[in-house]
């Protein structure tokens, strides 16, 4: 009897080892059957995102639970793969700045245009990337910055971004402007400052920049997008509490989803912004 328990324990350890070694070796280690999933709340899939959640990622008025917008669609597709109906998905509000801080989470995963970075990965776990993101520069089409065509020409301008974002890192590390960038608590604040003319340019992820220019801020345009290198570059990932076994199951689900089709449906209009190559 004792021997068999020990055997099972050893077997379990070996399997767990496989799972962590393989990264996405979910089928060997953790069961992704619905009843075996470790969830924050029994019987429902709890997904986090910020509020307000903006298009083209979510539906601004209806909130994340409408299935409208790219991230909402991806979240529901993952939920379906995991065996949850739309009614069994519950959304919780998670401010961006809190999402990747270390500690216990109140969501099973968070989907909120969060780029996968090595620094964040030390504090939380990420799914595989579900979107290859380019940073983009938003400016007013009748202003001086609209004529810029190289990174060097952008250095003279007053730029802004949200605190803690890869957009801010992009300004500091790649553009390296002559005047210190302005840094805001939220994208909403950054947009307000840009709209009020306190910034020459605002750095955002490309789909967001495209939406802002088309719908939110009149006279603004996407001056440039900065290709980050496709699958090798910057990617958005779903965020999990460090060590959450659900991550492997979500990766498995993501592999079965036609992300390209969802992207075509929700984000197809963002490709035609001018490109500035990063030297």
């Amino acid at each position: 009897m004792k021997k068999s328990i020990a055997l099972i324990a050893v077997l379990g350890l070996v399997l767990a080892g496989c799972a962590t070694d393989g990264g996405d070796g979910a089928e060997e280690g953790v069961s992704c059957e619905r009843e075996d999933l470790t969830l924050v709340q029994e019987g429902v899939l709890t997904i986090g995102t910020d509020e307000p959640a903006f298009p083209p990622w979510f539906d601004f008025d209806g909130g994340p639970s409408t299935g409208t917008g790219f991230e909402s669609a991806v979240a529901y597709a993952v939920a379906e793969e995991l065996g949850f109906t739309a009614e069994e998905v519950e959304w919780v509000v998670v401010p961006f700045n809190n999402s990747y801080a270390p500690g216990e989470k109140e969501f099973d995963f968070d989907i909120n245009q969060i780029s996968i970075t090595a620094e964040r990965d030390e504090a939380v776990d990420f799914s595989d990337g579900y979107y290859n993101v380019n940073q983009a520069l938003l400016g007013f089409s009748d202003s001086d910055i609209a004529a810029a065509t190289t990174i060097e020409e952008l250095r003279a301008f007053r730029l802004g971004a949200q605190v803690g974002t890869t957009s801010l890192d992009f300004i500091n590390d790649v553009i390296q402007p002559e005047t210190e960038p302005l840094v805001y608590d939220t994208n909403a604040d950054a947009k307000a400052a840009f709209d009020a003319g306190q910034l020459d340019g605002l750095v955002l992820d490309l789909p967001t920049a495209f939406y802002v220019s088309a719908v939110e801020i009149e006279g603004s345009t996407v001056i440039a997008q900065f290709p980050s290198g496709g699958d090798e570059g910057e990617q958005f990932g779903m965020l999990f509490e460090e060590g959450n076994p659900l991550r492997d199951c979500v990766n498995e689900a993501l592999a079965n989803i036609d992300l390209a089709a969802l992207q075509q449906e929700w984000l197809s209009d963002v490709v035609d912004a001018p490109v500035i190559e990063i030297s």
Partner: peptide, 11 residues
């Protein structure tokens, strides 16, 4: 004043 984008000590 950090709210307005100014990079002071807190920001």
């Amino acid at each position: 004043v950090a709210l307005l984008g100014v990079q002071e000590a807190f920001r």
